[in-house]
C-alpha cells in the first residue's frame, strides 16, 4: 500500500477500533473474508456446478449447491465462534530498554466457547488458544523495548478460522496497555546519592546498630526479608516486619539533581545503575526525581517502584 493510503487506513482503523482496556469483539469490530482455501472451495463448487450443468446431472448440481450452502453456513459459524470474545489487559513484565518485555493479554468468553483463536502482532509468532465459555485464558506476548519509557501495546491481530478454515474472521485490537521500559543501566563511579554515611558502597543493612527499633508491622510481600521479625515468627506470632526509625544520616537519597552535566536519558541510566547497585547491597535508598519523591526503603517491590518511576519519567501517574 502506498504511504498516504496506509496512513489513511491506519487512521480509519484507529477510529473504528479505538484502544481500550477491555474489548469485546462485537460485530462492529469483526471482519470476515474467505481464506485462500475458501476460494479454492468455492472454485470446486463452481466446477461441480459447471459439471452438473454439462452432464445435466441434477445430483452433481445439488452437490455444488450443498457446498455453496455449507459455505454460507460456515460464514455464520465462523462469525459466531469469533465474536463475543473478550480481551483485556493483564499484567505486564517490564524490562530494560533494548531488551524485551512482555504484555499479558487475558482472553475471556462470556457467551460461548471460542475455538482456535490466534493472536499475533508484528514481530511475534502467533499464539493459538481456546477460550472456554466462562473461563479466562492468559497469553503473554513479547514486546521489544526499543527505548526507555512507556511502550504502548501494538495492534494485535486476532483471528480465527474455525470451524472449516474456509473463512477467516479477524479483528485488530489495540489494548490501552503498555509495558515499561526501564533505562539501560550505565555504570558510573560517582554515586548520585547523599545522606548516607559514605557516598557509595553503603551498607546500611539494619544490623549496624545505627537504627532505632520502632515496632512491628504486618509483613507485606516485598518487605526485605532481613527485616522480618523471625524470632517472633518462630514463636508463632505470625510474620511481622521490624520497623526502624532510621537517623536521617543513615538514609540514602538518589537524587536527580546530583547527576549533573549529562543528557536526560544518561542521567536516568546512571540512576538506574545505582538503583541496582544499592539494591544488591540491600541498602535502603530513596529516589528524588523532579515531580516525584520515593521514600527510602529496600526490597524487590521498592526496587521495582524505583525502576518504574525512572521508566515513567517525566510523567508519573
Amino acid at each position: 500500500m502506498p504511504g498516504p493510503l496506509k496512513r489513511l487506513y491506519r487512521r480509519w482503523l484507529a477510529r473504528r477500533l479505538p484502544p481500550a482496556r477491555q474489548i469485546v469483539l462485537s460485530q462492529k469490530r469483526v471482519f470476515i473474508f474467505p481464506t485462500g482455501y475458501g476460494f479454492l472451495y468455492l472454485l470446486v463448487a463452481a466446477l461441480l456446478f459447471v459439471g452438473g450443468i454439462n452432464y445435466e446431472n441434477n445430483l452433481i448440481l445439488s452437490l455444488s449447491f450443498l457446498l455453496a450452502s455449507l459455505f454460507m453456513v460456515a460464514i455464520l459459524h465462523t462469525f459466531m465462534n469469533f465474536s463475543g470474545l473478550g480481551l483485556r489487559n493483564g499484567t505486564s513484565e517490564s524490562g530494560f530498554s533494548g531488551g524485551s518485555g512482555a504484555l499479558q493479554v487475558i482472553l475471556f468468553a462470556d457467551q460461548r466457547t471460542h475455538h482456535s483463536v490466534r493472536l499475533s502482532w508484528p514481530g511475534q509468532s502467533a499464539q493459538q488458544v481456546h477460550v472456554i465459555k466462562g473461563e479466562e485464558c492468559a497469553v503473554w506476548l513479547n514486546l521489544s523495548l526499543p527505548h526507555r519509557g512507556r511502550i504502548a501495546a501494538p495492534r494485535i491481530r486476532v483471528e480465527s478460522r474455525y470451524p472449516l478454515g474456509l473463512l477467516c474472521a479477524w479483528s485488530y485490537v489495540t489494548l490501552d496497555h503498555y509495558c515499561l521500559a526501564w533505562p539501560r543501566p550505565v555504570a558510573s563511579d560517582h554515586c548520585p546519592a547523599d545522606g548516607g554515611e559514605h557516598q557509595h558502597s553503603v551498607a546500611s543493612s539494619g544490623q549496624g546498630g545505627n537504627e532505632e527499633f520502632q515496632g512491628l508491622r504486618e509483613y507485606t510481600p516485598g518487605d526485605s526479608l532481613r527485616k522480618v521479625d523471625w524470632k517472633g515468627y518462630a514463636r508463632g506470632r505470625g510474620l511481622y516486619t521490624k520497623v526502624f526509625a532510621e537517623p536521617a544520616g543513615g538514609r540514602l537519597w538518589l537524587r536527580w539533581s546530583l547527576v549533573e552535566g549529562l543528557p536526560e536519558e544518561q542521567r536516568l541510566s546512571v540512576l538506574c545503575y545505582w538503583t541496582l547497585a544499592l539494591d544488591k547491597e540491600q541498602a535502603p535508598y530513596g529516589l528524588e526525581l523532579p515531580g516525584l519523591t520515593l521514600a527510602p526503603d529496600s526490597g524487590d517491590v521498592h526496587r521495582w517502584r524505583v525502576l518504574d518511576a525512572l521508566a515513567c519519567y517525566p510523567e508519573f501517574d
Partner: peptide
C-alpha cells in the same frame, strides 16, 4: 449440525 443447516439452503438453491 452445519450440514443440517446447509440442506434447507441447498433445497432452495436447487
Amino acid at each position: 449440525v452445519m450440514l443440517m443447516q446447509a440442506v434447507p439452503l441447498m433445497v432452495v438453491l436447487f
